[in-house]
Design a protein around this nucleic acid. Structure first.
Lengths: 235, 235
DNA sequence: CGTCTGGTTGATCTAGATCAACAGGAGTGG
DNA sequence: CCACTCCTGTTGATCTAGATCAACCAGACG
Protein backbone atom coordinates (compact mmCIF):
# COMPACT_ATOMS: atom_id res chain seq x y z
CA UNK A 1 0.00 0.00 0.00
CA UNK A 2 2.90 2.29 -0.81
CA UNK A 3 2.57 5.70 -2.37
CA UNK A 4 2.78 4.22 -5.85
CA UNK A 5 0.52 3.14 -8.58
CA UNK A 6 -0.57 0.03 -6.78
CA UNK A 7 -3.42 2.10 -5.50
CA UNK A 8 -4.24 4.29 -8.45
CA UNK A 9 -7.90 4.59 -9.13
CA UNK A 10 -8.65 3.56 -12.65
CA UNK A 11 -6.72 2.25 -15.61
CA UNK A 12 -3.48 2.30 -13.76
CA UNK A 13 -4.83 -0.35 -11.51
CA UNK A 14 -5.24 -2.57 -14.48
CA UNK A 15 -2.09 -1.76 -16.29
CA UNK A 16 0.65 -1.26 -13.83
CA UNK A 17 -0.48 -3.19 -10.82
CA UNK A 18 -0.51 -6.53 -12.57
CA UNK A 19 3.15 -6.89 -11.78
CA UNK A 20 4.61 -9.53 -9.58
CA UNK A 21 5.21 -8.18 -6.11
CA UNK A 22 8.98 -8.35 -6.49
CA UNK A 23 8.78 -5.70 -9.13
CA UNK A 24 7.03 -3.23 -6.91
CA UNK A 25 10.24 -1.98 -5.43
CA UNK A 26 11.65 -1.28 -8.86
CA UNK A 27 8.45 0.44 -9.86
CA UNK A 28 8.41 2.63 -6.80
CA UNK A 29 11.85 3.94 -7.58
CA UNK A 30 11.02 4.89 -11.16
CA UNK A 31 7.79 6.56 -10.21
CA UNK A 32 7.01 10.08 -9.14
CA UNK A 33 3.87 11.87 -8.08
CA UNK A 34 3.66 15.54 -8.76
CA UNK A 35 1.11 18.29 -8.40
CA UNK A 36 0.47 20.78 -11.16
CA UNK A 37 -1.35 24.06 -11.05
CA UNK A 38 -3.69 25.13 -13.85
CA UNK A 39 -1.68 26.29 -16.81
CA UNK A 40 1.43 24.42 -15.76
CA UNK A 41 2.88 22.33 -18.59
CA UNK A 42 3.55 18.63 -18.11
CA UNK A 43 5.56 18.35 -21.29
CA UNK A 44 5.99 20.41 -24.41
CA UNK A 45 5.43 19.65 -28.04
CA UNK A 46 8.72 18.43 -29.46
CA UNK A 47 10.05 17.18 -26.16
CA UNK A 48 11.63 13.76 -26.03
CA UNK A 49 9.30 11.14 -24.58
CA UNK A 50 11.11 10.36 -21.37
CA UNK A 51 8.18 9.25 -19.26
CA UNK A 52 4.71 7.83 -19.19
CA UNK A 53 2.03 9.79 -17.34
CA UNK A 54 -1.15 8.98 -15.57
CA UNK A 55 -3.61 11.53 -14.30
CA UNK A 56 -4.83 10.74 -10.80
CA UNK A 57 -6.95 13.74 -10.26
CA UNK A 58 -7.68 17.01 -11.99
CA UNK A 59 -7.82 17.68 -15.70
CA UNK A 60 -5.13 17.77 -18.38
CA UNK A 61 -5.30 19.24 -21.86
CA UNK A 62 -3.39 18.09 -24.92
CA UNK A 63 -2.41 21.04 -27.10
CA UNK A 64 -0.78 21.37 -30.45
CA UNK A 65 0.74 24.41 -32.07
CA UNK A 66 -1.14 25.45 -35.16
CA UNK A 67 0.60 26.55 -38.35
CA UNK A 68 0.35 30.18 -37.26
CA UNK A 69 2.07 29.40 -34.00
CA UNK A 70 -1.18 29.47 -32.09
CA UNK A 71 -1.82 26.64 -29.69
CA UNK A 72 -5.08 24.77 -30.05
CA UNK A 73 -6.54 22.47 -27.47
CA UNK A 74 -6.91 19.05 -29.06
CA UNK A 75 -8.36 16.84 -26.38
CA UNK A 76 -8.76 16.33 -22.69
CA UNK A 77 -7.38 13.74 -20.32
CA UNK A 78 -9.68 12.68 -17.53
CA UNK A 79 -8.59 11.20 -14.19
CA UNK A 80 -7.52 7.58 -14.47
CA UNK A 81 -6.26 7.93 -18.01
CA UNK A 82 -2.71 7.28 -19.09
CA UNK A 83 -1.19 9.76 -21.50
CA UNK A 84 2.04 10.52 -23.29
CA UNK A 85 2.43 6.89 -24.31
CA UNK A 86 2.20 7.35 -28.02
CA UNK A 87 5.49 9.12 -28.39
CA UNK A 88 7.02 6.70 -25.92
CA UNK A 89 5.92 3.68 -27.90
CA UNK A 90 6.85 5.00 -31.29
CA UNK A 91 10.09 6.34 -29.96
CA UNK A 92 9.43 9.74 -31.46
CA UNK A 93 9.21 13.11 -29.81
CA UNK A 94 5.91 14.37 -28.48
CA UNK A 95 3.74 15.65 -31.29
CA UNK A 96 1.62 17.62 -28.87
CA UNK A 97 2.09 19.21 -25.49
CA UNK A 98 0.26 18.49 -22.25
CA UNK A 99 -0.72 20.99 -19.59
CA UNK A 100 -2.81 20.94 -16.43
CA UNK A 101 -6.18 22.66 -16.71
CA UNK A 102 -7.37 22.07 -13.19
CA UNK A 103 -5.05 21.53 -10.21
CA UNK A 104 -3.85 18.04 -10.95
CA UNK A 105 -2.03 15.15 -9.41
CA UNK A 106 0.01 13.32 -11.99
CA UNK A 107 2.03 10.16 -11.69
CA UNK A 108 4.96 9.64 -14.03
CA UNK A 109 6.99 6.58 -14.83
CA UNK A 110 10.43 6.76 -16.45
CA UNK A 111 10.42 5.75 -20.08
CA UNK A 112 13.07 3.08 -19.71
CA UNK A 113 11.27 1.39 -16.88
CA UNK A 114 7.96 1.58 -18.70
CA UNK A 115 9.44 -0.02 -21.78
CA UNK A 116 11.14 -2.68 -19.75
CA UNK A 117 7.91 -3.47 -17.95
CA UNK A 118 6.06 -3.85 -21.19
CA UNK A 119 8.73 -6.07 -22.63
CA UNK A 120 9.07 -8.19 -19.50
CA UNK A 121 5.48 -8.69 -18.57
CA UNK A 122 3.10 -9.89 -21.26
CA UNK A 123 0.24 -9.10 -18.95
CA UNK A 124 1.19 -5.45 -18.71
CA UNK A 125 1.61 -5.30 -22.47
CA UNK A 126 -1.75 -6.94 -22.90
CA UNK A 127 -3.46 -4.45 -20.61
CA UNK A 128 -1.83 -1.65 -22.46
CA UNK A 129 -3.04 -2.99 -25.75
CA UNK A 130 -6.57 -3.16 -24.44
CA UNK A 131 -6.26 0.37 -23.19
CA UNK A 132 -5.16 1.63 -26.54
CA UNK A 133 -7.87 -0.31 -28.31
CA UNK A 134 -10.37 1.48 -26.13
CA UNK A 135 -8.73 4.82 -26.81
CA UNK A 136 -8.91 4.17 -30.51
CA UNK A 137 -12.56 3.23 -30.31
CA UNK A 138 -13.29 6.39 -28.34
CA UNK A 139 -11.51 8.57 -30.82
CA UNK A 140 -13.43 7.06 -33.70
CA UNK A 141 -16.69 7.44 -31.84
CA UNK A 142 -15.84 11.08 -31.25
CA UNK A 143 -15.31 11.57 -34.94
CA UNK A 144 -18.73 10.16 -35.69
CA UNK A 145 -20.63 12.18 -33.15
CA UNK A 146 -18.69 15.28 -34.07
CA UNK A 147 -19.95 14.97 -37.61
CA UNK A 148 -23.49 14.23 -36.52
CA UNK A 149 -24.33 16.55 -33.64
CA UNK A 150 -24.28 20.34 -33.99
CA UNK A 151 -21.78 22.38 -32.00
CA UNK A 152 -24.49 23.42 -29.60
CA UNK A 153 -25.18 19.99 -28.17
CA UNK A 154 -21.52 19.05 -28.32
CA UNK A 155 -20.88 22.06 -26.14
CA UNK A 156 -23.51 20.99 -23.65
CA UNK A 157 -21.95 17.55 -23.42
CA UNK A 158 -18.54 19.13 -22.97
CA UNK A 159 -19.83 21.37 -20.18
CA UNK A 160 -21.12 18.45 -18.22
CA UNK A 161 -17.97 16.44 -18.88
CA UNK A 162 -15.43 18.99 -17.72
CA UNK A 163 -17.43 21.27 -15.45
CA UNK A 164 -16.32 21.12 -11.84
CA UNK A 165 -19.59 20.52 -10.05
CA UNK A 166 -20.15 23.18 -7.46
CA UNK A 167 -23.61 22.41 -6.22
CA UNK A 168 -26.51 20.31 -7.33
CA UNK A 169 -29.72 20.49 -5.40
CA UNK A 170 -32.63 18.12 -5.57
CA UNK A 171 -33.06 15.59 -8.29
CA UNK A 172 -32.19 16.87 -11.74
CA UNK A 173 -32.75 20.57 -10.98
CA UNK A 174 -30.44 23.59 -10.59
CA UNK A 175 -26.86 22.62 -11.24
CA UNK A 176 -23.96 25.05 -10.89
CA UNK A 177 -20.49 24.35 -12.22
CA UNK A 178 -17.15 25.89 -13.15
CA UNK A 179 -15.62 25.51 -16.58
CA UNK A 180 -11.87 25.09 -16.13
CA UNK A 181 -10.95 26.44 -19.55
CA UNK A 182 -11.11 29.61 -21.58
CA UNK A 183 -13.63 30.35 -24.29
CA UNK A 184 -11.14 29.93 -27.07
CA UNK A 185 -10.09 26.57 -25.74
CA UNK A 186 -13.72 25.50 -25.58
CA UNK A 187 -14.09 26.60 -29.18
CA UNK A 188 -10.99 24.66 -30.21
CA UNK A 189 -12.26 21.51 -28.52
CA UNK A 190 -15.53 21.78 -30.40
CA UNK A 191 -13.75 22.57 -33.63
CA UNK A 192 -15.43 25.93 -34.07
CA UNK A 193 -14.41 29.59 -34.02
CA UNK A 194 -14.40 31.65 -30.84
CA UNK A 195 -17.07 33.90 -32.31
CA UNK A 196 -19.37 30.96 -32.82
CA UNK A 197 -18.69 29.83 -29.27
CA UNK A 198 -19.71 33.23 -28.06
CA UNK A 199 -22.93 33.10 -30.00
CA UNK A 200 -23.85 29.65 -28.76
CA UNK A 201 -23.35 30.78 -25.19
CA UNK A 202 -25.42 33.86 -25.82
CA UNK A 203 -28.20 31.77 -27.30
CA UNK A 204 -28.26 29.36 -24.35
CA UNK A 205 -28.33 32.39 -22.08
CA UNK A 206 -31.25 33.96 -23.90
CA UNK A 207 -33.23 30.76 -23.93
CA UNK A 208 -32.74 30.49 -20.20
CA UNK A 209 -31.11 27.10 -20.47
CA UNK A 210 -27.88 28.21 -18.79
CA UNK A 211 -26.53 31.38 -17.18
CA UNK A 212 -22.89 32.26 -17.63
CA UNK A 213 -20.89 34.60 -15.41
CA UNK A 214 -17.23 34.32 -16.29
CA UNK A 215 -16.36 30.67 -16.07
CA UNK A 216 -19.25 29.83 -13.79
CA UNK A 217 -22.36 28.28 -15.25
CA UNK A 218 -25.73 27.97 -13.61
CA UNK A 219 -28.17 25.51 -15.14
CA UNK A 220 -31.67 26.03 -13.76
CA UNK A 221 -33.29 23.03 -15.39
CA UNK A 222 -30.89 20.19 -15.85
CA UNK A 223 -33.54 17.99 -17.42
CA UNK A 224 -33.92 20.41 -20.32
CA UNK A 225 -30.24 20.02 -21.13
CA UNK A 226 -30.37 16.28 -20.66
CA UNK A 227 -33.28 16.10 -23.03
CA UNK A 228 -31.54 18.08 -25.74
CA UNK A 229 -28.29 16.16 -25.65
CA UNK A 230 -30.10 12.86 -25.44
CA UNK A 231 -32.48 13.50 -28.27
CA UNK A 232 -29.79 14.63 -30.67
CA UNK A 233 -27.74 11.55 -29.90
CA UNK A 234 -30.67 9.34 -30.83
CA UNK A 235 -31.10 11.02 -34.21
CA UNK B 1 9.84 -19.11 -47.10
CA UNK B 2 6.50 -20.87 -46.54
CA UNK B 3 3.24 -19.50 -47.76
CA UNK B 4 2.69 -17.73 -44.49
CA UNK B 5 3.13 -14.32 -43.05
CA UNK B 6 6.87 -14.64 -42.89
CA UNK B 7 6.84 -13.06 -46.29
CA UNK B 8 4.02 -10.55 -45.99
CA UNK B 9 4.85 -7.20 -47.37
CA UNK B 10 4.33 -4.56 -44.75
CA UNK B 11 3.33 -4.44 -41.10
CA UNK B 12 2.90 -8.14 -40.89
CA UNK B 13 6.58 -8.52 -41.44
CA UNK B 14 7.17 -6.55 -38.33
CA UNK B 15 4.47 -7.95 -36.16
CA UNK B 16 4.17 -11.60 -36.85
CA UNK B 17 7.54 -12.51 -38.24
CA UNK B 18 9.40 -11.62 -35.11
CA UNK B 19 8.70 -15.08 -33.78
CA UNK B 20 11.30 -17.66 -33.07
CA UNK B 21 11.56 -20.13 -35.93
CA UNK B 22 10.10 -22.97 -33.85
CA UNK B 23 6.84 -21.12 -33.70
CA UNK B 24 6.52 -20.89 -37.41
CA UNK B 25 5.00 -24.32 -37.66
CA UNK B 26 2.32 -23.41 -35.14
CA UNK B 27 1.68 -20.17 -36.92
CA UNK B 28 1.31 -21.84 -40.26
CA UNK B 29 -1.39 -24.11 -38.95
CA UNK B 30 -3.48 -21.29 -37.51
CA UNK B 31 -3.17 -19.18 -40.59
CA UNK B 32 -5.23 -18.99 -43.72
CA UNK B 33 -5.01 -17.01 -46.91
CA UNK B 34 -8.18 -16.29 -48.73
CA UNK B 35 -9.26 -14.31 -51.76
CA UNK B 36 -12.30 -12.07 -51.67
CA UNK B 37 -14.21 -10.52 -54.53
CA UNK B 38 -15.47 -6.96 -54.38
CA UNK B 39 -18.52 -6.78 -52.16
CA UNK B 40 -17.70 -9.97 -50.32
CA UNK B 41 -17.84 -9.58 -46.55
CA UNK B 42 -14.89 -10.55 -44.37
CA UNK B 43 -16.89 -10.31 -41.16
CA UNK B 44 -20.11 -8.71 -40.10
CA UNK B 45 -20.96 -6.16 -37.49
CA UNK B 46 -21.90 -8.05 -34.36
CA UNK B 47 -19.85 -11.12 -35.21
CA UNK B 48 -17.65 -12.60 -32.55
CA UNK B 49 -13.97 -11.70 -33.04
CA UNK B 50 -12.58 -15.08 -33.88
CA UNK B 51 -9.64 -14.00 -35.97
CA UNK B 52 -7.14 -11.33 -36.77
CA UNK B 53 -6.87 -10.16 -40.36
CA UNK B 54 -4.21 -8.67 -42.52
CA UNK B 55 -4.77 -7.31 -45.99
CA UNK B 56 -2.04 -8.40 -48.40
CA UNK B 57 -3.42 -6.92 -51.50
CA UNK B 58 -6.58 -5.15 -52.62
CA UNK B 59 -8.76 -2.84 -50.59
CA UNK B 60 -11.06 -3.43 -47.66
CA UNK B 61 -13.77 -1.17 -46.29
CA UNK B 62 -14.97 -0.97 -42.71
CA UNK B 63 -18.70 -0.31 -42.53
CA UNK B 64 -21.10 0.35 -39.76
CA UNK B 65 -24.86 0.22 -39.77
CA UNK B 66 -26.39 3.61 -39.15
CA UNK B 67 -29.38 4.15 -36.89
CA UNK B 68 -31.72 3.86 -39.87
CA UNK B 69 -30.26 0.51 -40.81
CA UNK B 70 -28.24 1.94 -43.65
CA UNK B 71 -24.62 0.95 -43.83
CA UNK B 72 -22.05 3.72 -43.98
CA UNK B 73 -18.45 3.29 -45.02
CA UNK B 74 -16.29 4.37 -42.12
CA UNK B 75 -12.75 3.88 -43.24
CA UNK B 76 -10.49 1.99 -45.59
CA UNK B 77 -7.85 -0.63 -45.00
CA UNK B 78 -4.85 -0.47 -47.29
CA UNK B 79 -2.55 -3.37 -48.16
CA UNK B 80 -0.18 -4.21 -45.33
CA UNK B 81 -2.56 -3.13 -42.61
CA UNK B 82 -3.85 -5.39 -39.89
CA UNK B 83 -7.54 -5.09 -39.03
CA UNK B 84 -10.17 -6.61 -36.82
CA UNK B 85 -7.85 -6.46 -33.83
CA UNK B 86 -9.85 -4.08 -31.71
CA UNK B 87 -12.68 -6.46 -31.02
CA UNK B 88 -10.17 -9.23 -30.57
CA UNK B 89 -8.22 -7.31 -27.97
CA UNK B 90 -11.17 -6.01 -26.05
CA UNK B 91 -12.86 -9.38 -26.27
CA UNK B 92 -16.05 -7.81 -27.56
CA UNK B 93 -17.94 -8.47 -30.75
CA UNK B 94 -17.09 -6.51 -33.88
CA UNK B 95 -18.59 -3.07 -33.74
CA UNK B 96 -18.27 -2.69 -37.49
CA UNK B 97 -18.18 -5.00 -40.46
CA UNK B 98 -15.44 -5.45 -43.05
CA UNK B 99 -15.87 -6.14 -46.74
CA UNK B 100 -13.61 -6.33 -49.76
CA UNK B 101 -13.86 -3.37 -52.12
CA UNK B 102 -11.30 -4.50 -54.66
CA UNK B 103 -10.39 -8.16 -55.28
CA UNK B 104 -8.35 -8.83 -52.18
CA UNK B 105 -6.01 -11.33 -50.65
CA UNK B 106 -6.48 -11.52 -46.93
CA UNK B 107 -4.58 -13.47 -44.36
CA UNK B 108 -6.33 -14.47 -41.16
CA UNK B 109 -5.00 -15.80 -37.88
CA UNK B 110 -7.18 -17.59 -35.35
CA UNK B 111 -8.03 -15.51 -32.32
CA UNK B 112 -6.68 -17.96 -29.80
CA UNK B 113 -3.35 -18.23 -31.53
CA UNK B 114 -3.11 -14.49 -31.93
CA UNK B 115 -3.78 -13.94 -28.26
CA UNK B 116 -1.32 -16.61 -27.30
CA UNK B 117 1.34 -15.09 -29.50
CA UNK B 118 0.86 -11.71 -27.95
CA UNK B 119 0.99 -13.12 -24.46
CA UNK B 120 4.01 -15.31 -25.17
CA UNK B 121 6.16 -12.98 -27.13
CA UNK B 122 6.78 -9.53 -25.70
CA UNK B 123 8.28 -8.57 -29.01
CA UNK B 124 5.10 -9.31 -30.88
CA UNK B 125 3.10 -7.42 -28.27
CA UNK B 126 5.50 -4.54 -28.56
CA UNK B 127 5.17 -4.40 -32.32
CA UNK B 128 1.46 -4.49 -31.99
CA UNK B 129 1.49 -1.63 -29.56
CA UNK B 130 3.55 0.43 -31.95
CA UNK B 131 1.17 -0.41 -34.72
CA UNK B 132 -1.80 0.75 -32.72
CA UNK B 133 -0.02 3.89 -31.65
CA UNK B 134 0.47 4.69 -35.30
CA UNK B 135 -3.15 3.92 -36.06
CA UNK B 136 -4.26 6.20 -33.29
CA UNK B 137 -2.04 8.99 -34.53
CA UNK B 138 -3.41 8.56 -38.04
CA UNK B 139 -6.98 8.67 -36.87
CA UNK B 140 -6.36 11.85 -34.94
CA UNK B 141 -4.59 13.40 -37.88
CA UNK B 142 -7.57 12.53 -40.04
CA UNK B 143 -9.85 14.32 -37.62
CA UNK B 144 -7.76 17.44 -37.86
CA UNK B 145 -7.49 17.57 -41.62
CA UNK B 146 -11.14 16.68 -41.95
CA UNK B 147 -12.06 19.75 -39.98
CA UNK B 148 -9.64 21.95 -41.89
CA UNK B 149 -9.88 21.02 -45.55
CA UNK B 150 -13.10 21.33 -47.53
CA UNK B 151 -14.76 18.22 -48.91
CA UNK B 152 -13.50 19.01 -52.37
CA UNK B 153 -9.81 18.61 -51.60
CA UNK B 154 -10.49 15.69 -49.27
CA UNK B 155 -12.15 14.01 -52.20
CA UNK B 156 -9.17 14.63 -54.42
CA UNK B 157 -6.87 13.11 -51.82
CA UNK B 158 -9.21 10.15 -51.54
CA UNK B 159 -9.27 9.62 -55.29
CA UNK B 160 -5.53 9.40 -55.44
CA UNK B 161 -5.41 7.17 -52.37
CA UNK B 162 -7.88 4.53 -53.49
CA UNK B 163 -7.89 4.91 -57.25
CA UNK B 164 -6.53 1.90 -59.05
CA UNK B 165 -4.01 3.45 -61.38
CA UNK B 166 -4.75 2.47 -64.93
CA UNK B 167 -2.27 4.52 -66.85
CA UNK B 168 -0.01 7.44 -66.21
CA UNK B 169 1.86 8.91 -69.11
CA UNK B 170 4.76 11.23 -68.97
CA UNK B 171 5.77 13.08 -65.84
CA UNK B 172 2.81 14.45 -63.90
CA UNK B 173 0.43 14.58 -66.89
CA UNK B 174 -2.68 12.60 -67.85
CA UNK B 175 -3.54 10.07 -65.18
CA UNK B 176 -6.41 7.62 -65.52
CA UNK B 177 -7.76 5.58 -62.63
CA UNK B 178 -10.68 3.49 -61.38
CA UNK B 179 -12.53 4.25 -58.18
CA UNK B 180 -13.39 0.95 -56.54
CA UNK B 181 -16.42 2.26 -54.62
CA UNK B 182 -19.83 3.72 -55.22
CA UNK B 183 -20.70 7.40 -55.02
CA UNK B 184 -22.57 7.03 -51.79
CA UNK B 185 -19.65 5.26 -50.20
CA UNK B 186 -17.37 8.03 -51.34
CA UNK B 187 -19.75 10.51 -49.76
CA UNK B 188 -19.83 8.54 -46.52
CA UNK B 189 -16.04 8.43 -46.37
CA UNK B 190 -15.89 12.19 -46.76
CA UNK B 191 -18.67 12.71 -44.26
CA UNK B 192 -20.95 14.44 -46.73
CA UNK B 193 -24.25 13.74 -48.47
CA UNK B 194 -24.48 11.93 -51.80
CA UNK B 195 -25.97 15.04 -53.38
CA UNK B 196 -22.96 17.08 -52.34
CA UNK B 197 -20.67 14.38 -53.71
CA UNK B 198 -22.46 14.63 -57.00
CA UNK B 199 -22.06 18.38 -57.10
CA UNK B 200 -18.38 18.24 -56.30
CA UNK B 201 -17.81 15.77 -59.12
CA UNK B 202 -19.82 17.93 -61.47
CA UNK B 203 -17.78 20.97 -60.52
CA UNK B 204 -14.47 19.18 -61.09
CA UNK B 205 -15.85 18.02 -64.41
CA UNK B 206 -16.86 21.52 -65.45
CA UNK B 207 -13.55 23.01 -64.45
CA UNK B 208 -11.81 20.39 -66.56
CA UNK B 209 -9.80 19.12 -63.63
CA UNK B 210 -11.12 15.56 -63.93
CA UNK B 211 -13.42 13.65 -66.25
CA UNK B 212 -15.73 10.99 -64.80
CA UNK B 213 -17.32 8.17 -66.72
CA UNK B 214 -18.89 5.74 -64.33
CA UNK B 215 -16.18 4.76 -61.92
CA UNK B 216 -13.38 5.71 -64.25
CA UNK B 217 -11.61 9.03 -63.79
CA UNK B 218 -9.36 10.78 -66.24
CA UNK B 219 -7.18 13.55 -64.89
CA UNK B 220 -5.66 15.57 -67.71
CA UNK B 221 -3.39 17.73 -65.61
CA UNK B 222 -2.21 15.97 -62.53
CA UNK B 223 -0.18 18.95 -61.42
CA UNK B 224 -3.32 21.05 -61.07
CA UNK B 225 -4.74 18.53 -58.62
CA UNK B 226 -1.46 18.23 -56.81
CA UNK B 227 -1.33 21.97 -56.46
CA UNK B 228 -4.80 22.24 -55.02
CA UNK B 229 -4.42 19.48 -52.47
CA UNK B 230 -0.98 20.67 -51.53
CA UNK B 231 -1.86 24.29 -51.11
CA UNK B 232 -4.86 23.59 -48.89
CA UNK B 233 -2.76 21.33 -46.74
CA UNK B 234 -0.31 24.14 -46.12
CA UNK B 235 -3.03 26.55 -45.04
C1' DC C 1 -45.18 -3.77 -66.09
C1' DG C 2 -44.44 -1.63 -61.49
C1' DT C 3 -41.10 -1.06 -57.96
C1' DC C 4 -36.50 -0.16 -56.08
C1' DT C 5 -32.05 1.45 -55.71
C1' DG C 6 -28.26 4.60 -57.18
C1' DG C 7 -27.32 8.70 -59.14
C1' DT C 8 -28.12 13.47 -60.81
C1' DT C 9 -30.19 18.11 -60.67
C1' DG C 10 -32.69 22.25 -58.81
C1' DA C 11 -34.34 25.41 -55.07
C1' DT C 12 -33.89 26.65 -50.67
C1' DC C 13 -32.14 26.86 -45.90
C1' DT C 14 -28.81 27.15 -42.21
C1' DA C 15 -24.77 26.41 -39.21
C1' DG C 16 -20.91 28.21 -38.91
C1' DA C 17 -16.99 30.96 -41.10
C1' DT C 18 -15.23 35.33 -42.16
C1' DC C 19 -14.37 40.22 -41.78
C1' DA C 20 -14.61 44.10 -38.98
C1' DA C 21 -15.26 46.76 -35.01
C1' DC C 22 -15.15 47.42 -30.21
C1' DA C 23 -15.03 46.87 -25.02
C1' DG C 24 -12.82 45.53 -20.87
C1' DG C 25 -8.80 44.22 -18.26
C1' DA C 26 -3.73 43.57 -17.63
C1' DG C 27 0.50 44.95 -18.05
C1' DT C 28 4.18 48.12 -19.15
C1' DG C 29 6.45 52.17 -19.54
C1' DG C 30 6.57 57.16 -19.55
C1' DC D 1 -1.13 58.93 -12.88
C1' DC D 2 -2.13 58.46 -17.82
C1' DA D 3 -1.22 56.67 -22.41
C1' DC D 4 -0.07 52.66 -24.73
C1' DT D 5 -0.43 48.14 -26.37
C1' DC D 6 -1.84 43.40 -26.03
C1' DC D 7 -5.10 39.91 -25.30
C1' DT D 8 -9.63 37.85 -24.49
C1' DG D 9 -14.15 38.20 -25.39
C1' DT D 10 -18.41 39.98 -27.42
C1' DT D 11 -21.28 41.76 -31.19
C1' DG D 12 -22.85 42.84 -36.02
C1' DA D 13 -23.03 42.08 -41.10
C1' DT D 14 -22.23 39.17 -44.55
C1' DC D 15 -20.85 34.96 -47.02
C1' DT D 16 -20.63 30.10 -48.15
C1' DA D 17 -20.21 25.05 -47.87
C1' DG D 18 -22.97 21.80 -47.36
C1' DA D 19 -27.65 20.06 -45.73
C1' DT D 20 -32.32 19.45 -46.79
C1' DC D 21 -36.41 18.71 -49.56
C1' DA D 22 -38.11 17.43 -53.83
C1' DA D 23 -38.31 15.86 -58.34
C1' DC D 24 -36.55 13.04 -61.82
C1' DC D 25 -33.92 9.50 -64.65
C1' DA D 26 -31.87 5.07 -65.73
C1' DG D 27 -30.95 0.52 -64.98
C1' DA D 28 -32.10 -3.86 -62.36
C1' DC D 29 -35.27 -7.10 -61.28
C1' DG D 30 -39.30 -9.19 -59.49
Amino acid sequence: MGRCCTNCTDFLVNEWSSLDPENHHDLNKATRHQRYLPGEPVYHEGDAADALFCLHDGLVGIRKLGPEGESVLLRLVQPGQTFGFRALLTGTEHRAGAEALKPSLICSLQAGTARRMIDDSPLVARRFLEHMATDLAETEAKVLESAAAPARVRFMRLMLAVGERRSSLGEGREVCLDLPISRQDLAALLGIRPESMSRIIKALQKEGIAHFTGRRVRIPFMDRVAEEIGQEAAV
